[in-house]
Design a protein around this nucleic acid. Structure first.
Length: 482
DNA sequence: TTTTGAGTTGTTCGA
DNA sequence: GTCGAACAACTCAAA
């Protein structure tokens, strides 16, 4: 055991050096700092990181370690029950203090609360911080002190709150302990797939704090102007693509907020509206965390309990078709394949494919949420839960039951040239634009010319829109009243 | 306590 | 082709 006291920073979903309050606090002690990562997914229960998230986590940990090494430090990786890992570390080093940034998932909160009490009881200084949110979920409330359940008043509350604090600068050096604790090699966590299915994901992303900063810079330069309307276009590079970086904490919302506000200020009034619409999206992320914190059961149960009576169907074949992007609706299929190939899907298309699964196929939202959880690199319990419950109509501020997306009209509106479909559904690429979103209406010779053979190299629709729409409306009738 | 206005993202139908 | 209304009723948040 080394005599020199040390401070431990426990990294979780805050894989960055800048604007990292836990790291900042550790440095302020003046003690050597041990950056620690613990892999013990079992402690996160049903919603521990799944396939695509694990791939990202691997890259992000690698990037964090590289950055720490530039500061004369390194990332110590351990696995095992968290309390046990800390027990060992305390036996090996004179640990004076432990710092981390808070998480808001129900199982994680439970684990962290117990751990904090135990560490304090054994005489350590322990402190946790907010790195992930503009406002902690318990600091915003309605006038009667209750949590918000409607977005607009929540957004107004954010706008009238004090501006979030300025981000902290990244440290320029880190004091190393006299002796480094043992660390597992990153590869031993086996986060990367055994069969390499990640080529498409690799090509689409640069995980890590530097990749996150690049993405923000690119968005501010090229994406913010016109964001309000262009953000709905999956065929254009019109969104920030910051979601996975935000999920893993490679960048924090305060950094984004202030960068956008500064950009708006510098533009005069030109970017006022676009900037505000983007900030609203950050606020949706906040709202999702607010709801998860105050209604933790909603990860698996509908917020509106009458949805327990909803007549969902069990249809393995239809589910399979949806997952694989073989529903016969080009926009739905393009979205599901974008997800499969790149680990991400444009927000507008997420709504369309979710609406299709829930309302056209009547498959439970939890099933869709589970698929997204496994395949998204930005899988985030708060956002995923809100999104699926919202679309199902069983959550906060939910979509009215009669809002059933028509996958063809949505496609015509938001992918007008069909370029998004052509990118991800190459077997339709040669179809002329008027038929790209409804190949079943194309004349025989047009299909032949384009090399499309419906039912052979591209499926016929697995369900008729008008029929499915009426079936969904009837299903909602069943849970109305009482 | 009661009342009032409002609620991210839509579609279809008929004039 | 365009336009407005209907599609329900409920709950939330604030006055």
């Amino acid at each position: 055991m080394s005599d020199q006291p040390v401070a431990v920073v426990w990294f979780r979903l805050d894989l960055r050096l800048a604007d990292n309050p836990a790291l900042h606090a550790a440095i302020k002690t003046g003690l050597p700092v041990i950056p620690l990562f613990i892999w013990q997914p079992e402690e996160e229960g049903r919603w521990s990181p799944a396939s695509a998230s694990r791939w990202w986590l691997h890259q992000s940990l690698h990037a964090l370690d590289a950055q720490l090494r530039q500061l004369g430090s390194r990332l110590v990786i351990r696995r095992g029950p968290t309390s046990e890992v800390f027990r060992q570390l305390i036996a090996e080093h004179r640990v004076h203090a432990v710092f981390w940034n808070r998480r808001y998932e129900p199982d994680v909160i439970k684990r962290d609360t117990t751990l904090k009490a135990d560490l304090k009881a054994s005489g350590l200084a322990v402190e946790s911080f907010n790195a992930a949110l503009l406002h902690e979920p318990w600091t915003l409330a309605t006038q009667t002190g209750k949590p918000f359940q409607v977005f607009t008043p929540f957004w107004k509350a954010i706008q009238s709150s004090a501006s979030p604090p300025q981000p902290l600068a990244a440290p320029r050096k880190l004091l190393a302990p006299p002796k480094w604790p043992d660390s597992l090699p990153l590869a031993s966590l086996e986060l990367e797939p055994k069969i390499d299915w990640a080529a498409g994901i690799r090509a689409a992303w640069v995980p890590g704090e530097l990749g996150a900063a690049q993405a923000l810079k690119k968005f501010l330069t090229h994406g913010l102007e016109g964001y309000r309307t262009a953000r709905d276009r999956p065929d254009l590079p019109s969104t920030s693509r910051l979601s996975p970086h935000l999920h893993f904490g490679e960048i924090g919302p305060r950094q984004i907020w202030h960068a956008v506000v500064e950009k708006m200020r510098a533009s005069g009034s030109a970017l006022q509206t676009d900037g505000e619409w983007f900030l609203r999206e950050l606020a949706w992320r906040e709202f999702a965390h607010h709801l998860l914190y105050h209604f933790p059961h909603t990860t698996d149960q509908p917020l509106r309990s009458e949805f327990g009576r909803f007549p969902w169907r069990d249809d393995r074949q239809a589910l399979r078709a949806w997952q694989k992007g073989r529903t016969g609706y080009p926009l739905v299929d393009a979205g599901m394949r974008e997800l499969w190939v790149t680990g991400w899907m444009h927000n507008r298309v997420r709504m369309v494919v979710a609406s299709f699964l829930l309302k056209h196929l009547l498959i439970p939202w939890q099933t869709g949420a589970a698929w997204f959880w496994d395949t998204l690199v930005d899988a985030d319990l708060a956002n995923n839960t809100l999104g699926w419950q919202w679309t199902a109509g069983c959550g906060a501020d939910a979509a009215p039951y009669f809002r059933i997306f028509n996958p063809v009209s949505q496609a015509k509106r938001f992918d007008p040239e069909g370029n998004y479909v052509r990118r991800y559904v190459p077997e339709l690429a040669r179809l002329p634009t008027p038929y790209i979103h409804r190949p079943w209406d194309a004349p025989k010779d047009v299909l032949t010319e384009a090399g499309v053979s419906l039912g052979e190299n591209y499926p016929l629709p697995i369900v008729d829109h008008a029929f499915a729409r009426q079936r969904a409306l009837d299903a909602f009738e069943r849970i109305r009243g009482k």
